[in-house]
Design a protein around this nucleic acid. Structure first.
Lengths: 239, 239
DNA sequence: CGACGGATTGAAGCACCTCAACGGGAGTGG
DNA sequence: CCACTCCCGTTGAGGTGCTTCAATCCGTCG
């Protein structure tokens, strides 16, 4: 996150957020202990399995969420089944940036996911009493907007090779494998990658294979890779 | 704008914003007379001619702007000259949604444009004292984010015909010609349309010609058109 | 083991791009 | 007023990058 809170004070051992792994990243991070406790008590922790729908586009936007574990995708379907993924939500990300009555995108779990769920009405009231939270939400929205516009450049003007290279670099910054800092996991399917990059799965597969053949990356398994020549990959990503 | 202020009280005749045509649309709309006066006195009115650069990507984000007249484009260039336009700014729109130090996109005047210019530091201080303004900025950012994500669907998954149809419908809602409600102006060049839709100008031209040949639209001049069959155009836009 | 689903690879097609020529309105100068 | 030019837009012909369709591979799970 762009402007992440740092040096948060430790919470009491009985605080509901004591064990939260993403407190520094999440919007909640700007709240001090008592306010955070009141905030968290306003909403339960919910869990979704891979493939589950968290919110459906056109649903009433009755709740907002903070993702603590897992991975979500934001997507939209055209009438004939074509799908575009507008973005992925990682732990610490906020789901529910809108002032509209309905959600504009569907949010689904790409991996088993845990979220803090807050009724929107209550959330809005809480914001009104905590300017720091409102400010943080604005920062998050501004950051998401910049990311979405950057993705417009990718979808509008980049070649398949450039899209894949950009994507792999993004993943490398976000999805370090448990097996080591040099290795990165693909946390989503090729179909999800394709729908995020505006390509077909066959093209995604071919481009990854080509990067492997060119010794720019190495596939350590079907779900993980290692960057061999980062400089070359960055050149490819830029065009 | 999503949550536009309504029923604004009249301003005193000597108020600097008395003649503002976009007060209801702009972020300033949430300020009452005295606060608005203090706000406006913090920043001059500036003017740019067609083609002028208002802010350059990677420039220090030292100012923010509110567009009162004209049209801007937000764009980004790849090293080899490929360009993507991330969006257009119409009167009432706000320029400067970011918490970063530098701008991420270049903003240029597509038509002669007038803006209210505010030093960012001063603007931030003003926000801190006016929660309604902060809230409005969040609403604007959320709205822009939804629009950008909608554009991701267009760039990632729609065909050239669908892109053009979507674009014409958007224009029709935004750019009524002075010659009448039924007629819509193209306020930008074919090159700008192409770079916004991720197409080449030849493709834009061909698709517009095809819609004309199919009697879905009518070209009333090279810079304006009329929708003949809106239902058909909407079908085409959706796929 | 066999079956299944996701991923890869191959071959052919097509939507859009590239390159090139042409058209027409606006501005300029005679 | 016309001739000229310039710029933007349009139209045509051929090329190509990604898609489509299809077959095969491979890890997982019963």
């Amino acid at each position: 996150m762009a402007s992440r809170a740092v040096n948060l004070p430790d919470l009491e051992h009985d605080h509901p957020c004591f064990d939260c792994a993403v407190r520094e990243l999440a919007v909640c991070g700007v709240l001090e202990s008592a306010a955070l406790r009141a905030f968290k008590e306003g909403g339960p922790t919910v869990h979704y399995d891979t493939g589950d729908t968290v919110v459906f586009e056109a649903d009433q936007a009755a709740n907002v969420y903070s993702l603590t574990h897992g991975l979500l995708r934001l997507s939209k379907l055209l009438p004939d089944g074509r799908r575009q993924i507008a973005g992925f939500l990682f732990p610490g990300d906020f789901l529910g940036i809108t002032m509209e009555e309905e959600h504009a995108f569907t949010a689904e779990a790409v991996a088993p996911s845990t979220l803090c769920k807050f009724p929107r009405r209550q959330f809005d009231e809480f914001i009104a009493r905590h300017p720091a939270l409102e400010r943080r939400l604005y920062a998050v929205a501004a950051h998401e907007l910049a990311a979405a516009r950057q993705q417009l450049v990718l979808l509008g003007r980049k070649t398949a090779t450039e899209r894949i290279a950009s994507f792999l670099l993004m993943l490398a910054g976000r999805c370090q494998s448990v097996r080591g800092i040099e290795e990165t996991d693909f946390p989503m399917s090729r179909a999800d990658i394709a729908d995020y990059l505006g390509l077909r799965i066959e093209t995604v597969s071919r481009e990854i294979s080509a990067l492997k053949a060119a010794r720019v990356i190495q596939l350590t398994s079907r779900q993980s890779f290692r960057i061999i020549d980062r400089e070359r990959l960055e050149q490819l990503a830029e065009g």
